[in-house]
Design a protein around this nucleic acid. Structure first.
Lengths: 140, 140
DNA sequence: TCAACTGTTACGATGCGTAAATGTGC
DNA sequence: AGCACATTTACGCATCGTAACAGTTG
């Protein structure tokens, strides 16, 4: 369709290089293909997975979202929205929708972060409790 | 053996009351029995699980440890150490060992908390990035 | 008889780890 | 011949969710 941001003849990476750059396991990256989260752009003549630079970026994004507890479905949606914005060929309405989508994710992320903060507080309470108990046994 | 802290004739709770108090699902509490993390003190004549107050406390402790990413094995160890300290009949050396164990957990917890903080920071970076992108689309 | 609670069994989902056997040569 | 890299298939683990079906009544 559109040539857009990525010129067609960019260097493709094999899975080994990819996992090295994104710090994910081979298994994980293959798993992301299984669930169609990041499907390699092509296969070499010998059936080796070949990834574009853009797909490496997707993997990095996924890696960032993981600790925030986003589901695969959510990741798919966000990636889709990103693609829409990146694609010069998408219409204004589609772009607006994608922008809206991303704003929704901003909200979700914010609440996830709040959750994380609460977890952190409770964890600190727990640590306190543990410390008190251990101190009690020290001075036994 | 020892009568100790818990008098023998305390009120026992059915699983329904337990999950209400600890805010865990029935399935989860039953699962914790499967893996022998918290096994009900007895069964009623009709085979209903009966939990002691102490076991409810254990469940609460577990619930606190979960978001810190402790493994089942670690939880078991910590609960064991707690039991040892609570048991008046345990010898001084055993108590000292349990205290040491708990101090180890203090250290682990501290590092887990650090991890949590790093997660939080990265999450905030992600949120920032998302916000910038959404703002870019707003002023399109 | 009915609602509400309890029980067991068991399959499913998620997110990979970890071989095992095999093919390729960025 | 051999090492490093790639492939697929597939079983396993952790943590429960979610029926489905049946018995109990704190």
């Amino acid at each position: 369709m559109t040539v857009g941001a990525g010129s067609g003849d960019e260097r493709l990476l094999q899975i080994g290089e990819v996992v090295e750059r994104v710090s994910l396991s081979l298994r994980t990256v293959r798993y992301y293909e299984e669930i169609e989260l990041v499907v390699p752009a092509e296969r070499s003549g010998r059936n080796f997975r070949l990834y574009t630079e853009n797909q490496v970026q997707r993997l990095m994004l996924i890696k960032q979202m993981k600790p925030l507890g986003f589901s695969v479905q959510e990741m798919r949606e966000l990636l889709e929205a990103f693609d829409l914005l990146a694609d010069e060929g998408s219409g204004a309405d589609a772009r607006a929708a994608a922008g809206e989508r991303i704003r929704e994710f901003c909200a979700i992320t914010a609440s996830r972060i709040d959750e994380l903060r609460r977890h952190l507080e409770r964890a600190e309470d727990f640590a306190q409790r543990l410390r008190r108990i251990s101190e009690a046994t020290t001075g036994d």
